[in-house]
């Protein structure tokens, strides 16, 4: 920690969720709000192999990990994604965060069979940033609304109930209307019991260019931690595996200080909340986990 750094340090209470940056920063899309600037050419972080994932899954057993999450980039660019998810379902519940534009029927057929054979749930979270192409496409790219909707329809066809995840690029007071519009448009695409999750914007990576970054005052201070339940913070119950090692949380992998060690065991030390994104996590809480985990308060 730099001399004079007074950032509050958060202990890892339980490693409940283990994340995998399974396609690194590689993505077929180049969203203008991406907090780690993923793109087809950004190979700052690379793919994780099935072998690497399996090693960490095995290590996670003795730590009592409750759920596994997979993100990128676009996870399904990783050619081993289907076997990775099949393997994970032997260890626990799996959630994959996808943009829904590259899914193939043969993959979903295998994954549905794997979920049926498992005790555990396989959740898909599909990122769509608005209920219309007019809202979504300027952020995620031309025709991405239409392509993602096809992905949703395919998931529904294979019996999944994807969680549609949207980053709030509108006024928070408009949430009700936007969610209502989303339910209607999803129903028109055959998804009649849509599950929806709204995420706050994280003003780092590409998003810092699109709008603005964090102001210096947007930091968590020691005073703010008084009477605050730190279980709201991802770093108190999660870690993420990348091709460089184990980092503190899925949001901060671009920050060099987020790398905690080479193994899960080495990553269990406390982490100082010195980033602007920590402030967003502090304000909104539990932003990365699924609704079924319940509210942390």
């Amino acid at each position: 920690m730099p001399f004079g750094d007074t950032s509050p340090r958060v202990a890892l209470t339980d490693l409940d969720e283990l994340w995998f940056q399974v396609s690194g920063t590689l993505c077929n899309l180049e969203c203008t709000h991406c907090f780690i600037s993923c793109s087809p050419k950004n190979d700052a972080f690379g793919y994780l192999s099935l072998e690497t994932v399996e090693r960490r899954l095995e290590e996670s057993r003795s730590l009592g990990v409750k759920e596994y999450y997979f993100t990128g980039g676009e996870p399904f660019l990783n050619r081993e994604m289907v076997p990775i998810l099949e393997k994970t379902l032997e260890y626990g519940p799996a959630t994959v965060l996808t943009n829904g534009t590259v899914l193939k029927p043969e993959w979903l057929e295998r994954l549905r069979a794997a979920e049926e054979a498992s005790t555990y749930c396989l959740e898909f979270r599909v990122s769509i940033d608005g209920p219309t192409p007019e809202i979504n496409d300027p952020i995620r790219g031309e025709r991405t609304f239409e392509r993602a909707m096809k992905g949703v329809a395919l998931l529904v066809e294979y019996g999944f109930l994807p969680i549609i995840t949207m980053t709030r690029t509108w006024d928070e007071r408009d949430d009700g209307e936007i969610l209502g519009d989303f339910r209607n448009v999803l129903a028109e695409h055959g998804y009649t019991r849509a599950r929806l999750k709204v995420l706050p914007r994280l003003k780092i990576g590409a998003e810092a260019q699109r709008t603005c970054g964090y102001e210096p005052y947007e930091r968590v201070t020691p005073e703010m931690m008084e009477d605050y339940d730190s279980s709201q913070l991802i770093c108190s119950h999660s870690r993420i595996v990348t091709d460089r090692g184990v980092h503190v949380c899925p949001i901060l992998i671009d920050s060099p200080d987020s790398l905690m060690g080479a193994t899960l065991e080495e990553s269990l030390t406390p982490y100082p909340l010195r980033h602007g994104a920590c402030y967003t996590c502090y304000l909104y809480g539990a932003i990365c986990t699924n609704p079924s985990a319940g509210a942390r308060e």
Partner: peptide, 17 residues
Amino acid sequence: NEFLWESTTSTQFLEKL
């Protein structure tokens, strides 16, 4: 108020508890 659902609770988590 922790939700322990069958499909989202790993066995190693229960063992830890």
